[in-house]
């Protein structure tokens, strides 16, 4: 959501600036297990976004007072590289935006991780955005879910996330950077696909009740594609091995 001055035309001939239909996702590619030291990791390209996610743990909660005798504590750090945007060199270290995103991301995974299995421990989730083009929190959650699954930490579900939004009259899915800057609404959501439960919901802009319903439906439809790509990424390393012995 940006100012409406100098607002570029975001929809031309019924198509979005990058040629997508209103309900079309950008291309998504996920590779699991890319970082050797991490207990689980994933690299994700979502349009021009490039994101690494890594998971460490469960391990002893430190400092000790942060631990919980009944369950694992989930910690999350979302951060954007200072060279990740086409604009100026960013400031390093998490800013207020990154700290909020880290918090809501952590809450998504607190819902699905079976943390009661690991009392007194912590599970660390790190999300590093090395190139950004809008929708990085959703992409980060989608990548982190794959990293967690790769680590073998038991989860009730494999959540996905994507943003819906609005340009003029049109409800659209998966806003890129320029759409995000000038859209009339932006609504990132994370969903647990097995139950359909909403694990993350943020929104700013303006949506009617009907537009809101339409946006949620669009998120769920896109979610089928995203979930499939996540599952394929998890299977790929094993398919490689089994193909070798065919």
């Amino acid at each position: 959501m940006g100012s409406s001055t100098n607002k570029p035309e975001l929809i031309v001939n019924g198509k979005r600036l990058d040629g997508r239909a209103f309900d079309e996702l950008r291309p998504i590619k996920i590779e699991a297990g890319v970082l050797k030291n991490a207990d689980g990791s994933a690299y994700l390209e979502w349009g021009k976004n490039k994101i690494f996610a890594a998971v460490y743990g469960p391990k002893e909660a430190l400092p000790k007072h942060t631990g919980d005798p009944e369950k694992a504590v989930i910690k999350c750090r979302y951060s954007m590289a200072p060279f990740s945007s086409l604009e100026e060199h960013g400031r390093s270290g998490p800013n207020r935006r990154a700290i909020e995103i880290s918090k809501v991301t952590k809450e998504v995974f607190e819902n699905v991780i079976m943390s009661e299995n690991f009392p007194g421990t912590e599970i660390d989730i790190f999300i590093e955005v090395v190139q950004s083009d809008g929708g990085t929190r959703a992409a980060g959650i989608t990548a982190a879910a794959v990293a967690l699954a790769t680590s073998g930490i038991p989860m009730r579900d494999l959540p996905y996330a994507v943003s819906a939004g609005k340009i003029g009259e049109h409800v659209i899915i998966d806003l890129n950077k320029i759409e995000d800057n000038y859209s009339d609404a932006d609504m990132p959501m994370a969903i647990s696909p097995r139950t359909g439960n909403v694990l993350l919901l943020q929104m700013d802009g303006s949506l009617t009740r009907d537009e809101f319903k339409q946006a949620v439906e669009m998120v769920k439809k896109a979610g089928q594609t995203i979930s499939r790509i996540q599952r394929e990424a998890l299977k790929a390393p094993y398919e490689k091995i089994s193909n070798k012995y065919k």
Binding site: L35, K36, N37, K48, K50, A81, P82, F83, S84, S85, L86, E88, H89, V130, Q131, S132, D133
Partner: peptide, 24 residues
């Protein structure tokens, strides 16, 4: 990293390092 003015990824064995350059 096309958004950066310059970038490189180096893999030295399992060590993986990314460098990004911005000019302001």
């Amino acid at each position: 990293i096309p958004n950066a003015e310059g970038s490189a990824e180096v893999n030295l064995g399992s060590t993986k390092v990314l460098a990004g350059v911005k000019l302001d």
